[in-house]
Design a protein around this nucleic acid. Sequence first.
RNA 1: GGCGGCGUAGCCAAGUGGCUAAGGCAGAGGUCUGCAAAACCUUUAUUCGGCGGUUCGAGUCCGCCCGCCGCCUCCA
Length: 500
Amino acid sequence: MPPRLYNTLTQRKEEIAPLVPGEVGMYVCGVTVYDLCHLGHARSLLVFEVLRRYLTFRGYRVRMVRNFTDVDDKIIRRAQETGTTWDAVANHYVREFQTDMARFELPPADVEPRATAHVPAMLALIERLLARGLAYVVDGDVYFRVRAYPGYGRLSQRSLDDLRAGARVEVDERKADPLDFALWKRAKPGEPAWESPWGPGRPGWHIECSAMAMHYLGESFDLHGAGEDLIFPHHENEIAQSEGATGKPFARLWVHNGFVRLQQEKMSKSVGNVFTIRDLLGKFSADALKLFLLGTHYRSPIDYAPEKVEEASRALDRIRLLAEAVEVLEEVPDEARPGGIASAVAAARAEYVAAMDDDLNTALALSAIFTLVRHLNAALDTLPERRLAGPAAAMALREGVAVVREQARILGLSLEGGVPAGAKAAAAAAVEALLREYCPASAPRITDLTGGVEALLARREQARGERDFATADAIRRRLNDAGIEVADRPQGSTWRFRRS
RNA sequence: GGCGGCGUAGCCAAGUGGCUAAGGCAGAGGUCUGCAAAACCUUUAUUCGGCGGUUCGAGUCCGCCCGCCGCCUCCA
């Protein structure tokens, strides 16, 4: 059975049924490049990347298009405020976006078109709407005639009368109807402008997505996604102008993710309660942030709180440490094979796929991963020593971890590193101070963090040998305060950064 | 006012009428240790906001009530 997704259009979960069997074309509304991305963007970007990866895992060839809106009122305003040009603002924030995505460890979409590179396609679409009587020109502006398009309101479950009753929009009296929206805006002095049959101007917001989606995916395509705030009016308008122009169904499946909130309130720039991806990645690893975001179903709201990301980070350690424990396994001659690994792996596979197939239920999929982790840990515990295994046991455990890694990878989790840059710098400074205190002789020669920690551990080992536990414990405690955990094992002491 | 959604253990959270209500965090007990820490294992909801109803059977369907949120304006 194919994966199912909740379709906003039909308000039901529906099976993926691509127009071209085996190939999925998806369009995701990207960002308007006038400011840094915040956690709300991160959630949407992550959810659709996970969808792309999961569909790919399930055997589909996926083409994901995600646009940059690189001309609009906010960009123009930002340029005026900062005394630069609109395209300088756009270029700047495209680069910032790419920087953030790299740090968040999300790859680019297959196509990342910019609105301003597709103005001719937009003009062509507007011409078609004019030819069909669905648009009209007023004084260099072009508007879509909402009441001439019968299906309007289908996506957002609204009737035209509801909209009129609730309309709080300031009415532009040049519009024939308050509901009509701009396809093309006549240029005002000093604004970016493109030539058009109706005079110089720039595209309205909605038309770019219609034009680019059709250009890269065809007039009809499989899946369109974004945050739920775009359902109305943006996606409603996209449908109206696209289907109005082509007479064909536009996107078949409309997928919308829920908001990130802060103390029960939507996180958005207009509310002013945003946390940028950049700031968050200074405090938390990409994996921790992703695990936090995927612990809640994508359609539900999720409340941001730093403690929750820290919790996610600790949960992540369960997976990482299991993977490490298995990967450093040493093989010894031993016929024993812990029972139940194969069935636990099979169960985890089935549960994971069932969960993800059912409207991308990442929270349930994660529980399958954690259950498998627990079974594999239990198997490790049955070994005579946790790091020594016979060939059969080692093979079974490695296979289990391979499944864990694959399932985590689909969720965007690398299971690597996990130490924010800020934490390393702070640790390095603290270690340098400790070196001067405990190893004054060698301190000047040691410049790197690893060397410093190792010198301190050697000094501590000496103290332990002399049963000077006061000194040994002091070093351990102060390293711990610096974010470096020391563990005494039979083979000697080891250390690592405290993860977050 | 119109439309949509949410309320499950100390916290987060899954749960598409039917075996003992996932999973994570925190807590408790245990293993390991010079002592720790970390790690691992075990354990933690007779009950799903309230009251009715449908059903052999409801957290899951219906109605009403209480509380919270979103969209209707730029917004992922």
